Amino acid sequence: RYRTTFTSYQLEELERAFQKTHYPDVFTREELAMRLDLTEARVQVWFQNRRAKWRK
């Protein structure tokens, strides 16, 4: 599977959502995914990776 490349707008929005909550529920993820034209799975994985980065 190829690596997803996020646009700067998508990253800004994902980071903004991350500032609000590190653990968005499925509705929040679905809403973000639709708004950013991504799949909910991509959003979920982004948050997993972002939390890992945050913990370091």
Rank of each mutant, 00 (worst) to 15 (best):
K56G: 13
L38M: 11
R1S: 14
E30N: 15
R50F: 02
A52V: 12
E12P: 02
F47A: 01
F6T: 06
R51Y: 07
Q10K: 02
D37P: 02
V45H: 07
V43N: 01
Q19N: 08
R16G: 06
P24W: 02
T7F: 04
V45Y: 13
R42G: 13
F6W: 04
F6K: 03
A52H: 08
K53R: 12
L11A: 08
F27A: 15
R51P: 01
S8V: 04
K20W: 05
T4A: 07
T4V: 08
Y2M: 12
H22C: 06
V43W: 00
K53M: 06
T28M: 12
E13Y: 02
E15C: 01
A41N: 05
T21N: 10
A52I: 09
Q48R: 10
D37R: 12
E31V: 09
L32I: 10
K20S: 12
L38V: 08
R16H: 11
R29E: 04
Q44G: 11
L32S: 01
V45R: 06
E30L: 15
T21K: 14
Q44H: 11
K20V: 11
D37L: 07
Y23M: 04
Q19F: 07
M34F: 03
E13H: 04
E30P: 01
H22Y: 07
M34T: 10
E31G: 13
P24I: 05
K53Y: 11
V26N: 14
M34V: 11
A17L: 11
V45S: 15
E13K: 03
R55W: 05
R55T: 10
A33M: 06
V26W: 07
K56M: 11
L11R: 07
R51I: 13
K53E: 15
L36Y: 04
R35L: 07
E12D: 10
V45Q: 12
Q48M: 09
T4S: 07
A33F: 00
L11M: 12
A52E: 11
S8C: 05
F47C: 00
Q10D: 04
R3F: 14
L14H: 01
D37E: 06
A17D: 02
L32K: 02
N49W: 09
W54T: 13
R55I: 14
E31N: 13
F47L: 04
A52N: 15
Y9H: 11
D25S: 08
Q10C: 00
K56L: 02
L38P: 02
E31R: 12
E13W: 04
E13S: 06
A41I: 09
Q44T: 15
L14S: 00
Q48W: 07
D37K: 15
R50Q: 10
Y9W: 05
K20Q: 14
R55V: 11
R1C: 08
R42Q: 10
F47K: 00
E15Q: 04
F27Y: 03
T39I: 05
F18G: 01
Y23T: 15
D25V: 02
T5W: 05
L32A: 02
A17V: 14
V45I: 13
A33W: 00
Q48Y: 14
Q10S: 03
R50T: 09
N49Q: 11
T5R: 03
D25G: 09
V43R: 01
R55H: 01
H22N: 07
A41G: 13
R16Y: 15
R3M: 15
E15Y: 01
A41V: 10
E13L: 08
F18V: 00
A41K: 06
R3Q: 13
T39N: 10
Q10Y: 02
A52K: 08
Q44S: 10
E13F: 03
T28E: 05
T39W: 04
M34P: 03
R16V: 09
E12W: 05
Y9R: 09
E30A: 13
K20I: 13
A17P: 00
E31M: 11
D25H: 10
K56C: 04
F6M: 13
R35H: 05
R29T: 14
P24F: 05
Y2A: 15
Y2C: 04
R29A: 12
A33T: 06
R35P: 00
N49G: 10
Q19C: 10
Y9N: 07
R16F: 10
E12F: 06
Q48G: 09
T5V: 09
V26L: 10
T21G: 12
V43D: 00
R3S: 15
T5F: 06
R3P: 11
V43M: 02
R1D: 15
Q10H: 04
R29G: 04
W46D: 00
K20Y: 08
A52T: 11
P24A: 04
E30H: 03
R51T: 09
L38T: 14
L32Y: 03
E40R: 08
Q48K: 15
V45N: 12
T28Q: 10
R42M: 10
L36S: 02
F18H: 01
L38Y: 04
